[in-house]
């Protein structure tokens, strides 16, 4: 069983640092070979997970959640009250959504999400996180200079808009609900979902153009 010994973990990492090939593809191949030969996983199972995250589990789920919240006031209220429960309406519950929290942008507040200590992310509704979200640059700067970070993403904030940065330091995971753009009256849930971007649900985009990107 696991030793849960911090110093052993550090010792083993130093050994791996000295003995593993530098090519990450070779390193992952080693890990996969050993896991398969130990009977811990079948290669087809790894294929299935790759397919799941390529085809099924992605930001389209979050976009549908947001679109429904725009259209359905009761769902919107339940989403803000208990997002982990509300997304079960759509069957999107899963990895890292057991304590999902939805936070809505308003005219006066912009929300932005980071995990400074690792890279926590609500995988089951947003899919794999973008690499920039996991970068040292974003993790270091998002909490200290969020406005400069937002400007790098092309976000310009009006003077009366406050920025709240949510640092996911526990098991809560955050979904930003962007504001519904003007000019979308009468749109279907599907049409609305098509304009909701992944970055807008992390909070590194604020205004949604009416043309899907």
């Amino acid at each position: 069983m696991a030793t849960f010994d911090s110093e052993n973990a550090a010792h083993l990492h130093r050994e791996l640092h000295s003995h593993l090939p530098s090519d990450p593809a070779l390193r992952v191949k080693t890990l996969e070979s050993l896991a398969i030969e130990r009977g811990l996983v079948a290669p087809q199972t790894v294929d299935a997970w790759v397919e799941a995250y390529s085809e099924h589990i992605g930001p389209k789920r979050g976009a549908q959640v947001v679109a429904r919240a725009w259209l359905d006031a009761d769902f919107h209220a339940r989403l803000l009250e208990d997002a982990a429960e509300a997304i079960k309406d759509l069957g999107f519950q899963g990895s890292a959504t057991g304590h999902l929290k939805a936070v809505a942008n308003t005219d006066r507040q912009h929300n932005m999400v980071v995990c400074t200590l690792c890279s926590c992310y609500p995988f089951s509704i947003l899919g794999m996180s973008p690499s920039w979200y996991k970068s040292a640059e974003y993790r270091a700067r998002a909490v200290r200079e969020p406005r400069q970070v937002l400007s790098e993403f092309g976000v310009a904030l009006a003077d009366d808009v406050a920025v709240r940065v949510w640092d996911s330091t526990a098991e809560l995971r955050y979904l930003v609900v962007p504001q519904r753009p003007a000019g979308t009256q009468g749109w279907s849930e599907e049409a609305l979902a098509a304009i909701v971007t992944r970055n807008s649900m992390i909070g590194t985009q604020r205004d949604l153009p009416l043309e899907a990107s």
């Binding site: 990450p24 191949k29 996969e32 896991a35 199972t45 790759v50 794999m128």
Partner: peptide, 22 residues
């Protein structure tokens, strides 16, 4: 750093699949 999962390198996708497999 803005690629979708499907556009990641094969080894990255394998690593995620191994992680999900426990």
């Amino acid at each position: 750093g803005d690629k979708d999962f499907a556009a990641l390198a094969d080894w990255e996708k394998r690593m995620w699949g191994l992680a999900r497999s426990g």
